[in-house]
Simulated scan of single mutants.
Amino acid sequence: MNRSIHKIIEEQIKRWELGNIQAVPLTQTTNVITISRESGSRGLQVAEKLADQIGFDLFHHEILEAMIETSKTSKALLETLDERGMNIVDDIVSALVHEHHLWPDDYSKLLLRILNTIGKHGNAIILGRGGNCALNKFNILRVRIVAPASMRREYIQTTRDLSFDDAQKQMISTDANRSAFVKRYFNSDASDPANYDLILNTGTLSVEKTVRLIKCAIGAAWNDENQ
């Protein structure tokens, strides 16, 4: 495992352990944002800037996969919840498996438990990995970042120094793999608008405006909850 990723996980565990005393009840406030994105839509940039501005922890693909690997040999991650909290997570995972007619393997069981552990601790942004499906029992904001195919391809081509054809192939392949992942592990359609609360187009919106709109949606959710 990459040493820096390992360090990030260790620091995350410490923050969770220190924060357990002030744990937020399951649906008291919207303190988790899930971000799904099309390849090349600059969803990672949006997630990073949003996390920086609102002070939430960002969990992207590499961190989540490293957490799964860590959990295979260590219970430290999942034990950051008290006994009651862990029971709630287990109940949620069981309900997800039943409601979505899933046949979970070892990987998906760990993924579901880790995503729901993150959700229970709160103050988190989860990028990809079906977070919007896994955390449907939580009071979350589910965001989808999209953009026209031509703009996404051009972005991939420029940032990764690829030919036109290679950028096109990578864009199609990445989107197909992400859709297949969500279908396999959550029996859901990643492109279905009904799976999201907010869909934003970075083809017409800058990253900065996109982040601003998400923050407005978070603020509106918080205001609704406090009325």
Rank of each mutant, 00 (worst) to 15 (best):
R113K: 11
L112C: 13
A194M: 14
A66N: 11
T204S: 07
T34E: 13
A47F: 11
I218K: 01
D192E: 13
K7Y: 04
N123V: 02
I9F: 02
C216Q: 07
E83P: 04
A95W: 15
R212A: 14
N223K: 13
G55M: 12
L18Y: 03
A167S: 00
D90C: 14
G122A: 12
L198P: 08
A147P: 05
M1V: 09
R178A: 07
A190N: 12
T30P: 06
E154N: 10
T34G: 08
R184L: 12
G131S: 02
L44Y: 12
I214H: 08
N226H: 13
T174R: 10
S41I: 06
N116F: 11
N2C: 00
D82W: 00
T204E: 03
N136E: 11
K169L: 02
T158K: 11
S94I: 14
I172E: 12
H60Y: 15
Q157S: 09
L96V: 13
K72W: 06
K120L: 10
V46A: 05
R152C: 05
A176N: 14
D57V: 12
S188Y: 14
V97F: 05
S150K: 07
R212N: 13
T27M: 07
F186C: 08
A217P: 02
I126P: 04
L26P: 01
D165R: 09
E48V: 15
D105N: 15
I199M: 11
M1G: 07
A76S: 04
V89M: 03
L198R: 10
W16H: 04
D197M: 12
V89A: 08
C216K: 06
Q28N: 04
T159V: 15
Q45I: 06
R15E: 07
T80F: 04
Q170V: 06
I125E: 00
T204C: 08
N187V: 12
T29L: 03
I21S: 03
F164Q: 14
I145C: 00
